[in-house]
Nucleic acid binder design. Sequence first.
DNA 1: AAGAGTTAGTAAATAGCGTTAACTAATTCT
DNA 2: AGAATTAGTTAACGCTATTTACTAACTCTT
Lengths: 406, 406
Amino acid sequence: MSNHFTPDHFTPNHFTPHAAGDLNYLKSLNRSTILSTVRRYPGLSRADIALRTGLTKATVGSVVNVLGERGWLREGELHARGGGRPGRSLYLDGEQHVMLGAEVGVKGLRVVACNLLGERLASQRLDVSPTTPEETAAVLARLIEALLGDPALAARPCLGLGVALPGPVAPQAPILRLAPNLGWVDVDFLALLRAELDAPAGVWLLDNEANAAAFGEFYFIEGTPPESIAYLSAGSGIGCGVVSGEHFPVIPRGHQGLVGEIGHTVLVADGAPCHCGNHGCAETLVSGWMLRESLGVAADASLSASLLARLDEPEVSAALARAGRALGLLMLNLHHTLNPSMLILGGSLMRLGAPLVAPALAYFDAHQNDLLRQSQRVPVKVVEDSTFTAARGAAAQVMARAAIEI
Amino acid sequence: MSNHFTPDHFTPNHFTPHAAGDLNYLKSLNRSTILSTVRRYPGLSRADIALRTGLTKATVGSVVNVLGERGWLREGELHARGGGRPGRSLYLDGEQHVMLGAEVGVKGLRVVACNLLGERLASQRLDVSPTTPEETAAVLARLIEALLGDPALAARPCLGLGVALPGPVAPQAPILRLAPNLGWVDVDFLALLRAELDAPAGVWLLDNEANAAAFGEFYFIEGTPPESIAYLSAGSGIGCGVVSGEHFPVIPRGHQGLVGEIGHTVLVADGAPCHCGNHGCAETLVSGWMLRESLGVAADASLSASLLARLDEPEVSAALARAGRALGLLMLNLHHTLNPSMLILGGSLMRLGAPLVAPALAYFDAHQNDLLRQSQRVPVKVVEDSTFTAARGAAAQVMARAAIEI
DNA sequence: AAGAGTTAGTAAATAGCGTTAACTAATTCT
DNA sequence: AGAATTAGTTAACGCTATTTACTAACTCTT
């Protein structure tokens, strides 16, 4: 029978049947659904899960017990609802498996190890700008080895490794297409990494930084899960990842992996030249590289620290306000094209804080049109420190994939 | 067991498991997969289908035979490939079932009846501008009754009725949210229609015009099926529908049904006022209503006929060229946000022909950036006459839904 | 304090799915 | 005419979730 879990790297959990299914598919579908129900609603009992998923108590019971034996679920306290026999609450087990996640950013490398709850167990960072893909893979490999040096961590079963890169990834194969801010083109980064590293068994995945971050924020979100989110990543460049799907979150990627490349939507016809070869892109109005160039911040200096120290210069504060309004406009356009039910702002530019973010939110609020006003204001969440967000998101993708391959 | 086929009106064929599945689900999944394989590749044999879907010959054979008995499939000629026993080719049966589709447009009403091949068996049109929702429903009901007056048509089993409207539809319920160009707000059009019409049994669906058109163009496309398409509908307003998914085409709608509302992306910060209550939207640069207003075409006159007759006026040809370039820019932005693998241009503005379309295509070609140049140019198809495109698309959605409910 | 009532969870029997393996059918090639 | 090859069907089989009946564990009532 055809395999629903072929390692299309880009569909770590894309459960939409792209093929027919057999009984194994059904089994895996239901096991994953149960697992995701516990992830989204920690503390449910077997009976609660049966009610929510539509499966019978018998099915849920047997699946839950298997997942318990394999270290994915643990039982917790008894419910106290009154009535009859109390249900036993179920949780993802944070003490067994781990996933590794890594990010290659324009300004540094990040590596994390997470448990099934998305909690960071350990992390490593190196604030150097990547050079060639080969050298970067070697450095990242050493960083991962350092992380796995912790014997407590190395003793846990590892589900795999996810890597996030600052550029679109081909939808058909785990290959970086183009990273304008690194100067990389068509890089098979996982192969380079594999040459340097044996370490984690399991799935190896590659994704765009914004997609990875979006996935992680959606997958491990606390409270009532939203239908979908968009993670707007504002750093050296501007990108955006979208995730939706309750049990099997999907990242739309499009034909060339360009879904959410809103930094290169043209806002000024024949405007200022952009790194991408076009003119008047959103990145020419708001982005790390544009602020750096226009305000003269050295490549090796911290953009946020430099600019926050110069806030009294009218030129600087005006530039940040202008960039903030452009960001607000991008947020509006995002809602008329990808229309998420929640917007998360992240990326290194968020460290600039209110001088950038306040004008963005104000513009966004002030320019809602009739279409948007028809329904409740879409919530916006700001992640001030997203140092490990993309790396953790890559780890989340590993978990999602592993969960359907159990 | 929970029902995977709950009439979420907006997921006529959204087969992504949003719930666990039982054996019925599996059965329906495979039956639909086989059906869609025949739709996409007419003339395959049972053995071909088995190879393509991964199902066994035994399963395919039994399912195909049932679908034949129920009037969905018919057998055709024998293959002539040499080798062993020739396979018998299979086709969707165009002689049995019909689906009805309707469109309420700013300039008129359209109704069609299609067979399973998407062929138009009959149609009706009425070139009047809709007034109130109630009156429009009554007029449309009479039009549908007129269509069903044909006894040959009325004798066929009908799968249902799909209706397309010029505005975003709520993702949770079949309700029109807002049609700026009709002045309608929160209209339950299917209920109004039901009050006037008993006629077709089966599924009743409601969708946005661009989504419906996109669905139909994708569902009934000839030749090698693309992974995804975007249908850019340029009429009184500018909208866009996206469809992807080989066996179970999905229309992303987003939280408020605003996916693809690119006509209201802001391209000029604080630009000209738009019907939507904002300023500087794409529709202020290219749209039927904007051309009408700026070039002084009466509301009851045909926009394309009027302007084509005035092409020698420099003001008119310059305005069309300007609008065309804006359309080209929108096409570019579309590729950096929704990134379809094929772009189809439709809508009433296409009747303007080369004076509008040529500048659009030229701009699109000339401004491809490095990201787009990384891969093959995305094909663009122009539908000159899209009178019945949306109505047929609505009918296609009915078929897709019916196919999983067999 | 004991029993009724209620809900959680388990166990065994059952119906239905796709697969497997063996078959028949229909063509071409030698 | 027979071997080889491919298409399609049939019956037995293993596995799935369900159904039905049961046991377990609590609260509430009397």
